[in-house]
Design a protein around this nucleic acid. Structure first.
Lengths: 141, 141
DNA sequence: TTATTAAATAGGAATGATTCCTAACTGATA
DNA sequence: TATCAGTTAGGAATCATTCCTATTTAATAA
């Protein structure tokens, strides 16, 4: 994913966020870095062009972007958080061998699951969202 | 879940693990504590009856139990790992409002998904396991 | 353009979950 | 009951993340 700066500015503005160079760099980094970067990955990347963005700022901005739904957090087995610039509904392929995480979109399956759970409602629980964690290994691993 | 000590001893022995008081306490704690305890929950619990089990030991034992598939790690949005004594295949209901995580077993759905993805194979990726994260809210929350 | 101000950032200290280290200890085996 | 590989206690170290606050800045209106 590779977006022009103006598009990034617009996204921030639309969400009522001040447009700062830090936010632009960080959101751009999440889009540009493949494989669901960690905060550390993002910090390393933005420091190349912007050496004095503070670590704390990066975490704060990431959290803000998650709150405003411009990016997503991705759960992993490890205790390190990773981020995803894709906010449309999707699932994840996790590799058991390496740390690769791949996005997987399947609207048909989403529809099926929605119907399935509509019939099979849980008493006392209202479903908001269903995400699949698909674990396996890539051939190359 | 509430198992007699002997059953716990057997589980450890079956996996080729030495039966130590620490391992028994910790495995017992994972079984007894509801809602997918954190390491901290487990440490607090076992210290009631066994005050001098070291923190490091608990983490090490938990990791060993996960490796031997006597327990499971549960992913959360937070960066705190939680543990689950249920190792049969199951999914999780996550509450958006509180930190409750509930197990959900559905063999029919598992079968369906297995078939579904058998047809829809991913080139270059071999699926090992599919787990659903079902997010929503409990009425009481 | 400039002043105003609420929001955002830099820098670094603090936190807290987890890991690491090693000497001492102990279950399993013969 | 001696042996020893495996395990633990205790505490220091690590490291991702959060917190603190003085300073800076983006947005707005005059």
């Amino acid at each position: 994913m590779n977006l022009p700066i103006d598009s990034i500015r617009n996204k921030l503005t639309e969400k009522g966020l001040k447009v700062t160079p830090q936010r632009i760099s960080i959101l751009e980094a999440v889009y540009k870095l493949d494989n669901h970067p960690t905060a550390e990955n993002i910090i390393a990347y933005i420091r190349e062009s912007n050496p004095n963005i503070a670590t704390g700022t990066t975490y704060k901005v990431l959290e803000t972007l998650v709150q405003k739904q411009l990016i997503q957090k991705v759960k992993t087995d490890k205790d390190i958080m990773r981020y995803d610039g894709v906010v449309d509904k999707h699932h994840h392929l996790y590799c058991s061998e390496c740390d690769l995480i791949e996005d997987y979109v399947d609207e048909d399956l989403d529809k099926y699951l929605k119907e399935y759970f509509k019939k099979k409602s849980f008493p006392g629980f209202k479903i908001e969202d269903i995400v699949l964690q698909i674990r396996g290994t890539f051939d190359k691993c």
